[in-house]
């Protein structure tokens, strides 16, 4: 059936809560209001205030108390209201959530999901459009995933909750209200796999989150120029699953990595390095990066210039092929 990503996440959360009484939702305004994006709408009414907790306004405490709940055997799913609000919780995420399993030599588990609506393109004020996923992807002990469409959102949130490792779940808020087909019956792809979302011959375009749709749009536009672009949705950012990427680049000879986060030391840098390691003799051009610029997120009237868009992506494809 067709539904928005918000609804798909909501139904995924509902199923996870029905299946496991240890699953709890916590966060600012997630209860009575249903979250500022309504992802948790109706869940407190159906599962009660004990399992859907409106938390005081303190991100470190949201994650820190979730650590204690995980110690007790719960599976907390916490919502950080906006990407730029996660930093007060950064210490708890990096120093505790990521390290407790290791510190205890495997005796303590942190089966926690940290949901973060991320990315720009919605005309928001400062701190509401950021892409901090790289900072979590480079932290050993955390897993980081991002859904790109409603079907994946519905299934990936359930898979993340079922994971015994902590998962940072990046939700592309720009795509929250777009609808897509959700097959609630078919067994999903594993959480830790990337996927070719559009097969093509001429160049490989790699993206995740909101940029997957932008890249698909770019591929459709490129058809007019007779170009056949392959688009890969990474889905999992840590661990990275570059098997399909390597297979693709060995065929196409060109790789273009697209993300909203800043370029320097971004995920694109790691992906370019890995492609170089694995596809050195197949590459016909250096790996191209189409990213946000190395600046704090700009005022929203400038974000259309800041965010990778169709023109910049196609320009990168052209540069690669002309190399």
């Amino acid at each position: 059936m067709r539904m928005t990503m918000v609804k798909a996440l909501n139904s995924g959360l509902r199923i996870a809560m029905e299946n496991d009484p240890k699953v709890l939702l916590m966060g600012e305004d997630v209860g009575r209001l249903g979250g500022v994006f309504r992802v948790t709408e109706g869940l407190q009414k159906d599962f009660g205030e004990g399992r859907v907790m409106d938390s005081p306004l303190a991100e470190s405490a949201i994650v820190g108390t979730a650590v204690g709940l995980a110690f007790r055997g719960f599976r907390p799913v916490v919502e950080i209201q906006f990407d730029g609000f996660v930093y007060p919780a950064y210490d708890q995420i990096v120093s505790q959530v990521a390290k407790l399993h290791f510190r205890s030599r495997g005796r303590v588990r942190m089966p926690m999901v940290i949901r973060i609506p991320f990315g720009g393109g919605i005309g928001a004020v400062e701190h509401h459009s950021e892409s901090p996923e790289g900072q979590f992807a480079l932290t050993a002990g955390l897993k980081v995933v991002s859904c790109a469409d409603p079907h994946d959102a519905h299934w990936m949130i359930q898979q993340a909750i079922a994971s015994d490792d902590p998962v940072v779940f990046m939700e592309p808020k720009r795509r929250y209200w777009e609808t897509g087909e959700v097959d609630t019956e078919t067994a999903p792809a594993p959480l830790w796999e990337s996927r070719v979302v559009r097969p093509g011959r001429d160049a490989t375009v790699i993206a995740y989150g909101a940029m997957v749709k932008t890249c698909l749009d770019s591929a459709r536009a490129a058809e007019d120029d007779g170009l056949d672009l392959e688009v890969i949705d990474l889905r999992t950012l840590s661990p990275l699953d570059l098997g399909p990427v390597v297979e693709s680049v060995r065929r196409t000879g060109h790789a273009i990595v697209v993300h909203e986060a800043a370029r320097t030391l971004g995920l694109g840098a790691e992906i370019a390095a890995r492609i170089t390691e694995e596809c050195f003799y197949s590459l016909e051009s250096p790996v191209q990066r189409v990213t946000g610029y190395d600046m704090p997120y700009p005022p929203s009237r400038a974000e259309h210039e800041f965010l990778p868009g169709l023109d910049r992506i196609l320009d990168a494809v052209d540069r690669a092929r002309a190399y």
Binding site: A61, G68, L69
Partner: peptide, 22 residues
């Protein structure tokens, strides 16, 4: 386990206690 990050464990204790209530 002993926590070296100053004060971080007070939140863990609070969360654990919330779990007892639940």
């Amino acid at each position: 386990l002993p926590n070296i990050i100053i004060g971080a464990q007070t939140l863990h204790a609070t969360g654990y206690a919330m779990g007892l209530t639940l």
